[in-house]
C-alpha cells in the first residue's frame, strides 16, 4: 500500500465520480432506500455484485499492465517488460499484446454489464479516470486502453502506472463501489453524515473480503439493472447514473 492508493480512492480525485449515484438515486425513488438500514442493505448488494466484478476487473487490468512481479495473479497473462513509475525504470510500451489483452478484458466487462445505462456510466467514469490519470501518472501504458474504457480497467491501469498491485486496485474498486453511492444517498436524503460514515466504515471487512477474492467474478443484480434503466429514462435527476 502506498499513498498512491489513497489518491486513487479519494473522492476528491476529479474523475467525475460525484455525478454518479451508483443506482442509489433510483433506489430512493423506488422506495428501496430510505434510511441507514436500507442504505446499508443497498450498499452490501452493490458491493457483492457490481463491486466484486469491478474489483476483479481492476485487479486483472493492473496485472496486465504492470511489471512482471504482479503478473500471473489473474488469468490474463501477457508478456511485458517491467514498468513502474516509482521504480524509475522506463514504463512498458503500449504493446499490441497489451492493447489486445485490455480490449478482451473490456469485452469481459461488457459481458458482465448487460445494462446499456450501466455500461455508459462505467465508460463515462473510465474516461474521466483516464483524463486525470494520464496527467497524474504519465505513461505510454494509457495508450493501450480503448478510448472509453470501462471504469475498472482505467482504475487498474492507473494502479499499475502508479506502482500499485492488483490487490490495491481491487481494494480501490471495491471501496469506490460503496463510497460513491453512500455519499449520493447522504445528499439526496439529507442523512446524518456521521451515520453514513459509520455504516460505510462498518462495511470495511466485507470490502476487504471482496477485494481479496480471486478471479473476475460475474455477480449480477437484476434489480440494479432495472433501477439503472428506469433512471436513465428520467429527465428529472440529479445524478448521471
Amino acid at each position: 500500500m502506498t499513498a498512491a492508493l489513497l489518491t486513487l480512492a479519494d473522492s476528491r480525485l476529479p474523475a467525475g465520480g460525484h455525478t454518479h449515484s451508483g443506482g442509489v438515486e433510483q433506489a430512493i425513488a423506488a422506495g428501496v432506500v430510505h434510511d441507514p438500514a436500507t442504505l446499508t442493505a443497498f450498499l452490501r448488494r452493490r458491493l457483492h455484485t457490481a463491486g466484486a466484478v469491478a474489483a476483479g476487473l481492476a485487479a486483472a487490468a493492473t496485472a496486465l499492465s504492470s511489471s512482471g512481479r504482479h503478473r500471473g495473479q489473474v488469468p490474463f497473462p501477457v508478456a511485458l517488460s517491467p514498468a513502474s513509475c516509482s521504480s524509475g525504470e522506463s514504463p512498458a510500451p503500449a504493446s499490441s499484446e497489451l492493447v489486445a489483452a485490455l480490449l478482451s478484458l473490456d469485452a469481459e466487462a461488457d459481458a458482465r454489464t448487460p445494462s446499456p445505462a450501466l455500461r455508459a456510466a462505467s465508460r463515462q467514469q473510465g474516461r474521466g479516470l483516464v483524463r486525470v490519470g494520464r496527467r497524474a501518472w504519465p505513461s505510454p501504458v494509457w495508450d493501450a486502453l480503448p478510448e472509453r474504457p470501462h471504469s475498472p480497467l482505467a482504475l487498474g491501469v492507473a494502479a499499475a502506472v502508479a506502482g500499485l498491485t492488483p490487490r490495491d486496485a481491487a481494494a480501490a474498486a471495491a471501496y469506490l463501489s460503496v463510497s460513491g453511492p453512500a455519499t449520493a444517498a447522504q445528499r439526496l436524503l439529507a442523512m446524518d453524515p456521521l451515520a453514513v460514515a459509520a455504516l460505510t466504515a462498518r462495511l470495511a471487512p466485507e470490502i476487504d473480503e471482496v477485494a481479496t477474492a480471486d478471479g473476475v467474478p460475474a455477480a449480477a443484480d437484476p434489480l440494479l439493472d432495472l433501477l439503472a434503466e428506469v433512471h436513465a429514462a428520467r429527465k428529472d435527476r440529479f445524478f448521471a447514473s
Binding site: 467525475g16 455525478t19 486525470v132 439526496l188 448521471a240
Partner: peptide
C-alpha cells in the same frame, strides 16, 4: 446538459469531468 450530482458548484470547480466530457 450535464447532471451535477446535487452539487452544481463541484461540477464547475472541483471535479469538472462531466463538463469536460
Amino acid at each position: 446538459a450535464v447532471q451535477t450530482g446535487c452539487c452544481p458548484h463541484t461540477a464547475i470547480r472541483d471535479d469538472i469531468t462531466a463538463n469536460l466530457d
